[in-house]
């Protein structure tokens, strides 16, 4: 599964893992790559395009490295999805140093409309990579479902 947004270097995609799912976000900035990774996270559960942006949820996290920051960011979203029974369809993110501040936009889970496939248990350190290359930033890991 893969989806491109108008900016050519911004996209998310999934990659296979035996029991679970790998997620990838890419973009011209670290923040955009993290935003795309979050869209890939939602896409594990449902199509992010079908999630209305009705409520804004603030999210903040920090970590000593980019890679651990990605895991923290995804786990913060997984936590908010679980306790609020919500899905998120878009994200506004700022990263300064090792601190990420974001707003996640979404709505309550609607079983009939979203047909959520599976709960996400947590983001793992497997295939975890955040790197900057000639094509921009790429942020990825496997999530346990």
């Amino acid at each position: 599964m893969r989806s491109r947004t108008p900016a050519p270097a911004s996209f998310w995609e999934h990659f296979p893992h035996d029991a679970d799912i790998g997620i990838v976000g890419a973009g011209p900035t670290r923040a955009e790559a993290f935003r795309q990774a979050a869209l890939a996270l939602t896409a594990v559960v449902t199509d992010p395009a079908n999630v209305a942006h009705l409520h804004a949820v603030p999210v903040m996290c920090q970590a000593p490295t980019d890679e651990l920051l990605l895991v923290e960011w995804l786990n913060a979203l997984i936590y908010e999805m679980a306790v609020r029974a919500m899905l998120f369809g878009d994200f506004a993110i700022e990263i300064a140093g090792g601190e990420l501040r974001a707003t996640a936009y979404g709505e309550a889970v609607d079983i009939a409309r979203h047909e959520p496939a599976v709960e996400i248990k947590g983001a793992t350190l497997t295939a975890l990579r955040v790197a900057h290359g000639p094509d921009g930033w790429r942020a990825q890991c496997v999530v346990d479902v």
Binding site: L68, I78, D144
Partner: peptide, 17 residues
């Protein structure tokens, strides 16, 4: 359920560091 997932998430990171 969510409790076990969260315990796993938190200790995995703490132990890795």
């Amino acid at each position: 359920r969510g409790l076990g997932h969260q315990i796993g998430t938190e200790f995995l990171k703490e132990m890795a560091m």
